[in-house]
């Protein structure tokens, strides 16, 4: 084995240890620099929380992992984002395929104005899957994973818009799970929900991490401390501190982090 090859094998095995990697990522919207050079590694089957005041770049950063910023006017990016060791901004990466692998749940529940069944089956149908029995089975298992099945199993043909906010959000998670992604990005998924629905979603996130790598942006520091394994604190487009959640909330290294988590600003 040549030296070169050996090195690259070692390198890729290092990369595998991490599900997601960012190397010196910079983002601009027009002239405004939203992300000022961030590098970080995210481990598989963990819940990683992004916290920080509004406008700190945490949502922008999250949306880099499934390239949701692509359609934003004036968006420009430098640096590298790797998933399972491959650069997702490579020319031959298919962005639709990437998004099937990297699911996303948004701030406000956004079910399609279709039936509950059609919502969950959407991702499979656009891949060209038509087998009815398979679709039904997948819809059922996805709804069961988010503990919505018992509530809606008799109303699968009813409009998803008739569900409550919390149910809609769980439906959106089920919709994401149905295409079997390996990573789920969540952009403040409970900020529009009441406390009871929030508790249900948090419980769900905790259960899901066995099978998925979860990255969650949250405004709510209690939430981050309750559900995440690791926490990253962002401020003004920079990653200030990134460590075990426990450490961040009890003994942060940086003064800015401490100021934020103790509520001195933000």
């Amino acid at each position: 084995m040549s030296k070169d090859k050996k090195e690259s094998v070692i390198e890729s095995s290092i990369k595998r240890k991490y599900k997601l990697q960012a190397n010196d990522v910079k983002v601009w919207y027009g002239d405004f620099m939203a992300i000022k050079g961030i590098s970080m590694d995210i481990k598989p089957n963990k819940v990683t929380a992004f916290i920080g005041p509004s406008g700190c770049g945490k949502s922008t950063f999250l949306r880099l992992f499934n390239r949701m910023n692509d359609y934003v006017d004036g968006f420009k990016m430098e640096g590298e984002i790797n998933i399972d060791g491959s650069n997702i901004n490579d020319k031959d990466i298919n962005v639709e395929l990437l998004r099937k692998q990297v699911g996303m749940v948004f701030q406000k529940p956004n079910p399609f104005p279709k039936s509950i069944f059609e919502n969950v089956a959407y991702g499979l149908k656009i891949q060209g899957l038509k087998d009815k029995a398979f679709l039904e089975e997948r819809v059922e298992s996805s709804l069961k994973q988010v503990a919505l099945w018992n509530e809606v199993k008799d109303d699968l043909n009813k409009s998803a818009l008739a569900l409550s906010g919390g149910q809609q959000q769980r439906l959106c998670i089920a919709r994401t799970l149905a295409v079997e992604p390996s990573i789920i990005l969540m952009d403040e998924p409970t900020s529009a929900l009441d406390p009871i629905s929030t508790a249900k979603i948090e419980e769900l996130i905790y259960k899901l991490k066995d099978k998925y790598t979860i990255v969650i942006v949250t405004h709510n520091m209690q939430q981050a401390s309750r559900i995440s394994d690791n926490t990253a604190f962002f401020y003004l487009g920079e990653l200030i501190e990134y460590d075990k959640t426990n450490k961040i909330f009890t003994n942060p290294e940086k003064e800015q982090t401490e100021n934020y988590i103790t509520g001195r600003f933000g």
């Binding site: 499934n66 639709e96 998004r99 099937k100 996303m104 956004n110 991702g123 656009i126 919709r175 994401t176």
Partner: peptide, 18 residues
């Protein structure tokens, strides 16, 4: 149509046509 629906569709891996 609210932009959130567009984001949901793209987030699921839809092409612009889908």
């Amino acid at each position: 149509v609210p932009n959130s629906l567009r984001e949901a569709a793209y987030g699921m891996g839809s092409t612009r046509l889908q």
